[in-house]
Design a protein around this nucleic acid. Structure first.
Lengths: 353, 353
DNA sequence: TCAGCGCAATGAGACGTCTCATTTTTATGC
DNA sequence: GCATAAAAATGAGACGTCTCATTGCGCTGA
């Protein structure tokens, strides 16, 4: 149906080898032959069959990226950066969604393997599940670069944000506003970067001379209901209530905020709030949410660079470990200097309801 | 490197044909041989080479989707639905981003053609540019289903929302709140669905007995600056100012809102506001924005169904034209009954600044 | 004129799979 | 035990491309 090189050869009156040489530019061809072939290409509207080429060359010029949930805005932005870098270097990018399930993640990787892709970016769905064996299985067929979420204690190429430093920056900011009782609500702590962010939280408190208390570290998840329960318990308790809340990721942060609003608490009146990731970047929405903004495009872009490095310049050699800095965008949810009296008065009213 | 059927055959002690039959299930194989082959597959960790299979069968089981901007939240949601439907039917989905450029769009389609995909969903970047010739070029190699944005006057398979009806619903809602001076800010009117949405706007006004005025129809775009200029001009003019604004898409709507807030106008105090698409779905952000919510997942899902129908059951036959209903989510940006006095007083204050 | 050289062009073969015509094995009935 | 039919297994060939060893050709200098 679609024209082949053989047909081009017949039309141009040259051999199939010459046609191939014109198309791939892999050998010298006389100007006369070249023109005849190009003309034939034009006439037949020929397009090389990448399938056949891949079979012969054993190269697909295709990369993959697996993310846990493409509808979380964080990931499309990363994908954009990755796709851009891939295209610039002449590679395709296949996007797959593991829907947060390690099983589906393995399926996706198997599919990519069957498609003979040359490398993959992985934002893993599994945290602790990513054991050495699983990692070996995942990365046995092609290079894999981890993105955002890192497997614990494995020596792999990765690109992520300086989670610890960013969290520390956020907490320091809250402390400068007068807060001492700062709670943190986390996602699943099986994820390495969640741990790092908690570490940054602790570190900032320590530097500020405030002891980190267990009752202020709320081990949450990505589940709306679970986060709601935890946050409501923590915020409405009679004593030892935090004046500020830090969420270690956007999904959890949104769930926390949603749940607290639903019981009548709001930020910044009742608690200061800072979250990793942008929830609503638009400054005219109230409350404006102070956020740690990750360099999403760059993360995707750099990750592809690391991956192609690995693909094109050897499998061995030191793993690249890239940590990009994040920035803090201060908005009203955290910008007020703490006033303990006013806030505890308001809270009493809320509790009466 | 990766094991092949030939190696399986040798290990299992059967012929390559038998191995193939076991793997593809295309012919009867004795239980004994089947077990031997399965065992060999297990031992060698064999995975079929889809490249080679595709070359032989001329089928890739791969579909494509091209969207104008993956970072607009609307599209990932569609992609999710499409990916889900594709996977259920055993197809891959390659996601590409045309970045709103018709040229890049053509490149992407060429790439997909070279990859020998079997069909494609297209949210076209070009509006008026999508002439019959261009369409023929795009769809000459495989079936194409248009999504969301439709080419004008072409008989194609498509899935979109009932744009006209949804817009009509939004405007009727505003009229029920007492508004008569309702402006509409559009995206590029080269896009067919933008036209449809304006048509719905006109239709609602007509049904309500209000003449549509040219000064109330603001022909905008996706560009922040252009939308800002238009909206600020329209909203700050001395007389004939609209009391309500309807945006025909989320990108334009966000730009409009941003620009009006930046000059001190806000909704719902100074103007009622309704937009196509969700800008911030979270109900605790103020102002809550009344929005037309499209069934994004379903759109993607249905589009794949239509596409696979076309692929698996013949290229000919009537084009499927699917229009899904959208819903209106009323929030505070439009929920107040119009009070002309209050609003004009506020406006004067704003203009003085 | 012709050997020697270098550039062009050639076309067979391979990549891993599936298909299908053919051969071999097994089962059945007498 | 043998003829026959049915079932199973076989392996060569093709898909479209690239590669590479070989051939063809024109030019140079002796």
């Amino acid at each position: 149906m679609l024209p082949t090189q053989k047909e081009l050869a017949k039309l141009a009156g040259v051999s199939s080898g010459t046609v191939s040489n014109v198309i791939s530019g892999s050998a010298r061809v006389s100007e006369r032959s070249r023109q005849k072939v190009l003309e034939a290409i034009r006439i037949l509207n020929y397009q090389p069959n990448l399938i056949a080429r891949s079979l012969k060359t054993n190269r697909t010029k295709t990369l993959g990226i697996v993310v846990p949930d493409i509808t979380i805005p964080f990931f499309p932005k990363i994908i954009r950066g990755a796709e851009c870098a891939a295209r610039e270097r002449g590679y395709f990018l296949i996007v797959l969604d593991s829907e947060g399930s390690p099983n589906r993640e393995s399926e996706m990787v198997a599919l990519l393997r069957a498609q003979r892709i040359e490398g993959m970016l992985l934002v893993t769905a599994s945290g602790e599940d990513l054991t050495t064996e699983r990692w070996t299985a995942l990365s046995s067929s092609f290079p894999v670069v981890c993105l955002d979420r890192l497997p614990a204690d494995l020596d792999v190429d990765f690109v992520c944000v300086d989670d610890c430093g960013a969290a520390e920056m956020a907490i320091s900011h809250l402390m400068r506003c007068g807060h001492r009782d700062i709670a943190v609500i986390t996602g699943p702590l099986t994820l390495r970067n969640e741990q790092e962010r908690v570490r940054g939280y602790r570190q900032a408190l320590q530097k500020g001379g405030v002891p980190a208390r267990r009752t202020m570290i709320w081990n949450g998840s990505f589940e709306q209901d679970e986060v709601a329960r935890i946050c409501q318990n923590g915020m409405l308790r009679p004593s030892g209530r935090p004046t500020a809340l830090f969420a270690t990721n956007g999904v959890t942060g949104l769930a926390a905020l949603r749940s607290l609003y639903s019981v009548g608490l709001s930020t910044p009146q009742d608690f200061a709030f800072v979250t990793f990731d942008e929830i609503a970047a638009e400054d005219f929405f109230r409350p404006g949410i102070t956020s740690i903004v990750q360099p999403t495009f760059d993360m995707g872009y750099r990750a592809i660079e690391v991956l192609l490095n690995r693909i094109e310049h050897g499998k061995n050699g030191r793993r690249e470990k890239v940590r990009l800095p994040a920035t803090l965008t201060v908005r009203e949810s955290s910008s007020m200097i703490l006033n303990l009296n006013a806030s505890s008065k308001r809270l009493k009213k809320v509790r009466k309801h």
